[in-house]
Simulated assay, not measured.
Amino acid sequence: MSTRTPHLLPHAADVERLADHLWEAVSVGDERAATARVLDALDEGFDAESVLLDVIGAVQRKVGEEWAANRITIAQEHAATAINERTVAALTLHPAARVTPTRGRITVACVDGEWHALPARLVAEVLKLRGWQVDYLGAQVPAPHLISHLHQTRADAVALSGSIATRLPTAHAAITACQAVGVPVLAGGAAFGPDGRYAELLGAEAWAPDARAAADLLARAPLPRPRAAHQQIDDLPHLADQEYTLVTRNSATLVRTVFTGLEDAFPAMRDYGALQRERTAEDLAHIVEFLAVTLYLGDEELFVQFLTWTAQVLVARGVPAQSLPPALGLLADELKDFPRAAHALAAGAAALTTTHHTANGTFA
């Protein structure tokens, strides 16, 4: 047993070593070993917050990176995430993680439709370690249920988590609903942008890039109480052109039309098997979804980033990313009367072409 003084921050090298050991266990699906690594570290005096964020959080980020690079399957990614979630649960039962609440009450919830719950869980557990009373509602929380909970608990704030940008219109509805009952919102997660630009656009009182920053922000001062729902859902001026609404309503038709046209525009698709065709349809649906949310936010940079990331994921799986520009062209033909959509599609196509040339013939 180590003689390290309990609850002190371990050396960075020790944290990195523990993260490597946890990854070794998680990557082979060994839940028992993963849990033992974490609990042993707590016994040796590792700070619980550091284990949550710098070890478990770091390993979860690596899980996502390994999936994107096609070094693990989607099933392995799901299994690894489940093990990390259970490891967090085991950590919370350790004496080092038992903290008596001395602060106010925070509700932590994921946006409706958001199934990536681990980031929100990490926020919830860090806030508990910092002395907050926390109601963790988990993944995919519909706004009416969230508001009902707020009426019952009188929370001081809501920490709203979102990882998938396509759920931002739903996040906007949740933020507005919370403000309507007088509860401020702290937004966080990859969906809100690396600089929190979408949290600000959608009217959240505050934004934090990660769990530690969220806890620090809440510790400094209470979030300001909203005087009223200061931004209605349709208050984004660029939505007046109805492009977002029309693209969303016609998304299924757009996907079918582009899928059919792609067989002529990209002849290699004619040789696709049933599974490849299904995956192509899914990719097209994601493109239309991201185009729609780009129109909602009025920020085509989001669409460009999604396309370049998609190209990299396709290449990692041996799928020709050259199918993307023809798909964008077909979609542009269908949306030629939608100026903002056409501009975003053109920007996306230009970015893919630039990436292709930069990478010497690939989209990697």
Results as ranks from 00 to 15, higher is better:
236 L>G: 01
296 Y>F: 12
184 P>F: 14
127 L>Y: 11
196 G>P: 11
64 G>Y: 08
248 T>K: 15
244 Y>R: 14
106 I>Y: 11
188 G>Q: 00
279 R>Y: 08
297 L>E: 09
65 E>H: 14
214 A>I: 06
11 H>K: 11
359 A>W: 11
226 P>W: 07
279 R>K: 15
287 I>C: 10
268 A>I: 12
107 T>Y: 02
294 T>M: 12
12 A>S: 06
352 L>R: 11
293 V>W: 10
105 R>Y: 06
263 E>I: 01
155 A>Y: 09
73 T>R: 02
222 P>M: 01
202 L>G: 00
203 G>F: 04
221 A>P: 00
203 G>M: 00
361 G>E: 10
215 A>D: 01
3 T>K: 03
68 A>N: 10
354 T>N: 09
91 L>D: 09
57 G>Y: 06
36 A>I: 05
234 D>R: 13
93 L>S: 15
163 S>Y: 01
35 T>Q: 03
43 D>R: 12
180 A>D: 10
91 L>G: 00
180 A>L: 05
179 Q>M: 11
288 V>G: 04
354 T>H: 14
327 A>Y: 09
205 E>M: 07
160 L>D: 03
197 R>G: 02
156 D>T: 02
76 Q>D: 06
192 F>S: 04
360 N>E: 13
265 A>M: 08
172 H>G: 09
358 T>K: 13
83 I>H: 00
315 V>R: 05
283 D>T: 14
256 R>C: 10
330 L>T: 08
246 L>Q: 12
344 A>S: 12
348 G>N: 04
252 A>D: 15
264 D>T: 15
52 L>T: 01
13 A>G: 02
43 D>S: 10
116 H>K: 05
100 T>L: 04
294 T>P: 00
291 L>R: 01
101 P>T: 12
232 Q>Y: 01
275 L>Q: 12
180 A>M: 14
316 A>P: 04
360 N>A: 09
69 A>P: 00
132 W>Q: 09
66 E>H: 11
128 K>S: 08
141 V>P: 03
212 R>S: 12
165 A>Q: 10
46 F>M: 03
307 L>I: 02
128 K>H: 10
7 H>A: 12
84 N>Y: 04
363 F>Y: 15
186 L>P: 03
4 R>P: 00
238 H>C: 00
177 A>Q: 09
362 T>V: 15
319 V>I: 13
5 T>C: 13
83 I>E: 01
76 Q>P: 09
237 P>T: 11
201 L>P: 06
216 D>I: 14
300 E>I: 07
77 E>M: 06
